[in-house]
């Protein structure tokens, strides 16, 4: 369970989120939707422990991300950022293995054929799937994904949604930042449209 309690977040002198509260249950998919610049990714980053609210608290199962060590935090939440870039020529499998066991998640996300490809040669969509796969490989109770479907074709979208549904069934709290209309988010258990 993720509990957001009256948080206010300021970035570059601008108030992005003001006095906001929310509860995100375990074992569900929650989509955060809204227009560009409304603070969707900021909220995700705050849950991830990347940025601290100037007021209020966020807890993941009683733990405050901002006060938790990176190693411990990596055991309770995993994150796939929106534009993951790769500088060194690791293979897809090596990248995923940095986060956790690779075989199963590569199979489920259709990445097995790309296992030995060097990540610097991947397309945007492929790189995004590798980033999602690495986050899933971390096997944490909370999974945070920033626009995971943005650069995907129809087949890959379907595959990713299937995998996320399965994870939610297994008890994982999946939080997804999405650009879609609410009508397209039938696969989400909860839609946060506070920012619309």
């Amino acid at each position: 369970m993720i509990t957001i309690n009256e948080i206010t977040i300021v970035r570059d002198g601008r108030e992005i989120i003001y006095d906001y509260s929310e509860q995100i249950p375990a074992g569900s998919i929650t989509a955060i939707v809204g227009p560009n610049g409304c603070g969707k990714s900021t909220l995700l980053a705050a849950i991830a422990g990347d940025i601290a609210p100037i007021k209020g608290t966020i807890t993941i199962d009683e733990l405050h991300p901002i006060l938790t060590s990176p190693a411990q935090l990596a055991q309770i939440r995993a994150v796939a950022i929106q534009n993951q870039s790769y500088t060194l020529g690791f293979t897809v499998k090596q990248i995923i293995e940095m986060a956790g066991p690779a075989e199963e998640v590569m199979r489920s996300l259709d990445l097995t054929s790309l296992a030995d490809r060097v990540v610097t040669t991947l397309s945007g969509g492929e790189a995004q799937r590798v980033s999602i796969a690495a986050a899933i490989a971390q096997r944490t109770p909370v999974l945070l994904l920033d626009e995971p479907l943005a650069a995907q074709d129809v087949r890959s979208r379907k595959r990713i949604i299937e995998v996320l549904k399965k994870l939610a069934e297994d008890g994982v709290s999946v939080v997804v930042v999405a650009h879609s209309n609410e009508s397209e988010l039938t696969w989400a258990d909860k839609v946060i449209k506070q920012f619309l």
Partner: peptide
């Protein structure tokens, strides 16, 4: 190796950057 993924991702997988 993990730092090569960028500071944010390295932190997400448990590295004290």
């Amino acid at each position: 190796d993990r730092l090569s993924l960028g500071d944010a991702t390295a932190f997400h997988i448990g590295i004290d950057v």
